[in-house]
Amino acid sequence: MHIKSDVAISDSGFVFVPATGESFTVNPIGAAIIHMLKENKSVEEVSKQIFENYKTDMATVEKDMNDFVAMLKQYSLIDTND
């Protein structure tokens, strides 16, 4: 699972895809997840990291991660070649 290499994310949570010209905004947790995915961490590793850093439970993280990754796929921000 990789975020497409040309996807740029700024500190303010602004995501820009040069290939399509589309832009998105993400909240701070969303930005943290995208940063980690760009560092080639697996979804499991990212989930674990989120669970460690935030006041929540693993079931919630897994459910929300699934949904978020599905949105990233829907918006074509994820390389489908893996």
Partner: peptide, 22 residues
């Protein structure tokens, strides 16, 4: 200390879409 959790959110910016950040 652990931070307050909020579910991750991604929103597409569309020109026709009212922008709620204001």
């Amino acid at each position: 200390e652990k931070q307050r959790y909020e579910r991750p959110l991604i929103k597409k910016l569309e020109s026709s879409m009212p922008n709620k950040f204001g």
